Measured scan of single mutants.
Amino acid sequence: KLETFPLDVLVNTAAEDLPRGVDPSRKENHLSDEDFKAVFGMTRSAFANLPLWKQQNLKKEKGLF
């Protein structure tokens, strides 16, 4: 399991300012399950079932792209 970080560490943070080991294209993977659901309004599995373009739009909207 990946290390999780608080939302404010990941949202609207440039790649070079992210904690070590965080993939800038997969910031959402480093949210706790609770934060993930609070941000996206759905579970990880529901998010994973969305088309890629919709996932990317949601990530942009939430500052996690």
Rank of each mutant, 00 (worst) to 15 (best):
T4I: 04
V11M: 15
Q56D: 14
G21R: 07
T43G: 12
P6C: 06
L10R: 07
P19W: 00
S45G: 14
E34G: 10
D8T: 09
M42P: 00
T4Y: 13
A15M: 06
P19Y: 01
E3M: 13
L64M: 07
L7N: 05
T13G: 05
K27S: 09
H30Q: 04
F40H: 03
L64A: 08
E34R: 12
L10V: 06
L31E: 02
T13N: 12
E61R: 06
P51W: 00
R20K: 14
S25M: 12
S32I: 03
E28S: 03
R26I: 07
A46H: 12
N12C: 06
E3A: 11
F47A: 00
P24E: 11
V9F: 14
K62I: 10
N49D: 11
V11F: 04
M42C: 12
K60T: 08
V22F: 04
N49H: 09
M42H: 04
L58K: 04
N29G: 08
V9D: 11
K37L: 13
D35T: 03
K27M: 15
M42A: 04
S32R: 05
E61M: 09
R44D: 01
D17C: 07
F65S: 15
R44S: 04
L18M: 13
Q55N: 02
M42L: 08
A38H: 10
L31F: 01
F65P: 05
L52A: 14
L7I: 13
A14P: 14
A48P: 00
V39E: 06
L18F: 02
N49Q: 10
S45R: 12
E3H: 08
P24S: 10
L64T: 04
F65Q: 07
G21F: 05
R44C: 01
A38P: 01
E28Y: 03
F47M: 00
R26G: 08
V11K: 13
S45K: 11
D35I: 01
K60G: 08
L50Y: 04
L7D: 10
G21I: 07
N12T: 12
D35Q: 08
K37N: 12
S32E: 04
Q55I: 01
N49K: 14
E16S: 10
A14H: 12
K1Y: 11
L10W: 02
N12V: 02
